[in-house]
């Protein structure tokens, strides 16, 4: 209930962003750092999806990021992939101290390819940068991989807040720019109508799907 004030007409665009990546890489803490400036040393694993929002300002426009934090375990992918549909951005998070979580990034990319929209903005996020002494994934290597795959890239620390805002902001900006470029006028669906949360087709509900379809047409 951090942002009660967000309930009404106080944003121009609503952007759905998903947070994915292996179990234990720090997705939930990235989200709580970004939306509540909080970090839980004793958090439980995420089951299903969890949801939070934060409004950013870009070019004088208010972008409300609606972020869906997903469970990392493979067994949940069949369920969580349903949440990818309608997403406009995704952060694929790995743990810089755990090379196997980095190696799985291609699996996550494939997940997005299979279940998400094609023009999705994707960012590769190496979390736990505060654990430099335990680093197992060189920055350059990840950066190179990101460039090759046309992904945005940052290294973050949810613990000490390094680059956390930046990582979300650059995704939001990229979505905004893409939207402008593609003349995909989202304001038809957000500003002009009472924002009932899902207005912009950001989830796979049948109603929302049809909205989205419309938006792609014009």
């Amino acid at each position: 209930m951090a942002d009660m004030e967000d309930y009404a007409y106080d944003y121009d665009y609503l952007l759905k962003i998903v947070l994915i990546g292996d179990s234990g890489v720090g997705k939930s803490n990235l989200l709580s750092r970004f939306t509540r400036n909080g970090f839980n040393l004793d958090s439980k694993s995420t089951i299903g999806v969890e949801f939070a929002t934060k409004t950013l300002e870009v070019d004088g426009k208010k972008l409300k990021a609606q972020i869906w934090d997903t469970a990392g375990q493979e067994r949940y992918r069949a369920i969580t992939s349903a949440y990818y549909r309608g997403a406009m951005g995704a952060l694929i998070v790995y743990d810089i101290t755990k090379p196997e979580t980095y190696e799985n990034v291609s699996k996550w990319l494939k997940e997005l390819k299979d279940h998400a929209d094609d023009n999705l903005v994707v960012e590769l996020v190496g979390n736990k940068s505060d654990l430099e002494h335990l680093r197992g994934v060189p920055t350059e290597e990840a950066k190179h991989f990101a460039a090759e795959n046309q992904l945005l890239f940052t290294e973050t620390s949810a613990l000490n807040a390094d680059n956390v805002d930046l990582s979300f902001e650059q995704v939001a900006k990229a979505i905004y720019n893409m939207v402008k470029k593609n003349q995909l006028d989202l304001s038809d669906y957000s500003g002009a109508k009472p924002p009932t949360g899902q207005t912009i087709s950001l989830t796979p509900t049948p109603g929302a799907e049809s909205n989205k379809h419309k938006s792609n047409c014009c």
Partner: peptide
């Protein structure tokens, strides 16, 4: 329904963890 809230969005965890969360 009107708010496009889907049951799976909030009750998945209720089932998966038997409301323990």
């Amino acid at each position: 329904d009107d708010e496009n809230v889907e049951f799976i969005q909030f009750s998945f965890r209720w089932m998966n963890c038997l409301l323990m969360r």
